[in-house]
Each structure stands twice: as structure tokens, then as C-alpha cells.
């Protein structure tokens, strides 16, 4: 069975799927990613599907599952590089990639993750500010 490599770049795990995955390979990737998120403490996952010429219901479900798992592990997932023909087919198939954030390419995906981490920091800072005011 082939295995999809996971690269760590700063605070982000980057997965670029370059093979036509069997279902087993997809399930393995799901497990490998969960382990790497915990092992590295990364807060972002980018899945590059530029090379995928189809996304069927199985792979679509895998992407949703990865997004949910990483959320629970305090990491955000962005799927990047979906081909136009794949997007058209997904919609007609009836698959709505629930809970998945998308970006056009890896660079935009990294910006998206950086921006949403910054928002969370702001919110956290605001919350602390409110508490301080309340106690004072």
C-alpha cells in the first residue's frame, strides 16, 4: 500500500496527495495525520489536491473527517488546489464538503490559517480583558 507523505513547515502540516489513492491509503492518511498533529503540536493542516483528477464520495468523506479530527485536536484544515472539473463533479454528485475550508492554492491556504490563528489570539486577549475589567 502506498503512503502519502506529511511535511511539517513551521506550524503547519502540508499534505500533497500525488497518487491515485486506494481507500486503504486514504484511511491510513487520516490516522497518520491525527498522530502527526498531536506529535508536532501544529495548528494548521493544508491538504493539496491539485494532482487529484477526481474526488469521489469516499475521498470527500475522508477530507471532512480529517477536518473534524484536526478541529478536535486544535488544528485547522484547509483544502487547496481543487480542479474546476472536480468542483463541478462534486456538486453534481451531491457532496457538500461540510466543515471544510478551501483556498485556491497553498499560499492562500497558509494565509487563511495564519489569519484565523490571529483572530483566535485577539478573541483570547479580549476575553482576558473583559475578565480583568470585571474583577476590577
Amino acid at each position: 500500500m502506498e503512503r502519502v507523505p506529511i511535511l511539517k513547515i513551521g506550524d503547519i502540516l502540508l499534505v500533497s496527495i500525488q497518487v491515485d489513492m486506494s481507500d486503504q491509503t486514504a484511511i491510513q492518511l487520516q490516522e497518520d495525520l491525527a498522530e502527526r498533529i498531536v506529535a508536532t503540536g501544529c495548528h494548521g493542516v493544508i491538504i493539496d489536491i491539485t494532482a487529484l483528477d477526481i474526488v469521489d464520495s469516499f475521498v470527500g468523506r475522508m477530507l471532512s473527517t480529517i477536518a473534524s479530527i484536526s478541529k478536535v485536536l486544535d488544528a485547522e484544515t484547509v483544502v487547496v488546489g481543487m480542479r474546476p472539473a472536480v468542483a463541478i463533479t462534486l456538486v453534481e454528485l451531491g457532496l457538500s464538503l461540510n466543515g471544510i475550508r478551501t483556498a485556491l492554492n497553498v499560499e492562500r491556504g497558509m494565509e487563511l490559517i495564519a489569519a484565523s490563528r490571529a483572530d483566535e489570539w485577539d478573541e483570547a486577549a479580549d476575553d482576558e480583558g473583559t475578565e480583568t475589567t470585571a474583577t476590577a
Binding site: D53, I54, D56, F58, R83, A85, T89, L93
Partner: peptide
Amino acid sequence: RQLVRTTAVAVRLSLVDQTKLVTAASE
């Protein structure tokens, strides 16, 4: 999937139609 893709290219289906057919075949 690979066999269907090759055949779809050979009969010159459009890229979107190739993608739809290969996806249906995969399901």
C-alpha cells in the same frame, strides 16, 4: 478508474465529462 480514464480520453470526452465518468465509475 485508470482504465475508464484512458478510455474516456481515447473517445475525446471533455475534461468535465471525463471527470464525471471516472467519479461515477469509482463509486
